[in-house]
Nucleic acid binder design. Structure first.
Lengths: 225, 225
DNA sequence: CGTCAATTTGACGGCTATCAAAGTACGTGG
DNA sequence: CCACGTACTTTGATAGCCGTCAAATTGACG
């Protein structure tokens, strides 16, 4: 819903007819074909020719980069409706892997594919880029200036909002290690911060460690500032 | 130059006719007017109506956000040719201030302004967004995974490239505090890391503290990985 | 030459990383 | 249905990098 509002009043190139990630994907009469990838499977790697980009239909995808010594930074988790893998250059600058089993819509990066269809896909792509940029900006604030505790609180709230889990319980699709590499922390720090939030009563942790119940949204929001 | 290459082979919406930031700005017959702002002057603030966006003609601009307690994150420094202040929503999500005295091209965010002119401005804007996203992605790696020393090395190389200072000497337009708030460090850490790089012979620091001479590009590049 | 802001340097503490090990969930096979 | 094994997560102990607080130094400018 915030997507529709976010693009209100924008000129055509910046508005999108795609209101949100949960809606039926407008794939009718479009050249994009489907592809299903298993959990942990590679979708593309850094340096691969960037002939296609992708839209998540179901499941979750991570895109990341590595430093020479193996340090990993996951720049984003892509949820249903999100577009990823679109590059300005000829090659992919990231690696992309499925976090869970995922269904993808594959689009060739060609003029006619985007120009056609009355420009609907092109506008959707631009809107998606815009959202990606906003998320990247929010994430820079997190990485540059927030404490471990604040990072976890922010991350949980963001995931809860994006996954639109009606209630306050959410099932994180990714491991603690993935969270760490997204939040600029180590696994241990993530674990400690999560535990601490539970001790303080801001969240609850069911036996299944992928599950989190947000108990005090106000306090969590305060931590995200 | 890398901009032209970077967008090669892209469909119209992703390519730009604007090869680089140093070229004469294509303002002929366009609705954008000029505005000059003094150093340290505010251009817009978070929450302002985002009726316009800007293109730097000369000088340098910083965009940043604040946490409730005053922690600041400068998401980007905008150099001549860069576009900033374009929002998906109705309000600015950032503050923008001039780092040095700057000349700006102001563009109203309206359908006809972008749609007209054969779409040249629109394409330029999209290309600029793309570059902004790539820079944000690079910066997330820096903020999430690099040490203070590595951050400084990366920053210096990036600025040298962007400012296209023919040689190896560059004059940083911003203060150490600005660098710190961009790199997710404190002023003291920036100062220490810079001093350390000088001790190790990777850079030289003329008396004027805004000046830096890159002495060992290879070692600096290694640090940036 | 004096003033002032910016930068650097120093001492110290804290937050997070690192290294190590124990605990826990879950799938497999008996 | 339960024992077992494995991967993931948590917890513990310690170290190190960077932040904090404080003061000295430097360079710019009048």
């Amino acid at each position: 819903m915030q997507t529709a509002l976010a693009t209100a009043g924008l000129p055509p190139v910046f508005s999108t007819s795609l209101p949100g990630r949960a809606l039926p994907l407008s794939t009718e009469a479009r050249p994009g074909h489907r592809r299903t990838v298993a959990a942990e499977a590679e979708i593309f790697a850094e340096g691969d020719r960037a002939g296609s980009f992708y839209k998540v239909v179901s499941g979750v995808v991570r895109t990341y980069r590595l430093l020479a010594d193996g340090r990993r930074q996951i720049d984003a988790f892509h949820l249903p409706g999100d577009i990823f893998g679109l590059e300005a250059g000829a090659e992919h600058r990231f690696n992309a892997e499925a976090v869970t089993e995922a269904q993808l819509e594959v689009h060739r990066r060609e003029p006619r594919a985007l120009a056609g269809d009355d420009g609907a896909l092109a506008r959707e792509v631009v809107a998606s880029m815009m959202r990606g940029l906003e998320r990247a900006q929010d994430h820079m604030m997190l990485l540059g200036r927030k404490s471990a505790r604040e990072r976890i609180a922010t991350f949980l709230l963001t995931m809860a909002r994006r996954m639109a889990c009606g209630g306050t319980a959410l099932e994180l699709p990714m491991s603690r290690t993935d969270m760490a590499d997204h939040l600029g922390l180590t696994v241990e720090s993530v674990s400690r911060a999560v535990t601490q939030l539970e001790r303080d009563g801001l969240i609850a942790l069911p036996p299944n460690r992928r599950m989190v119940v947000l108990r005090d949204m106000v306090a969590l929001a305060d931590l995200s500032e």
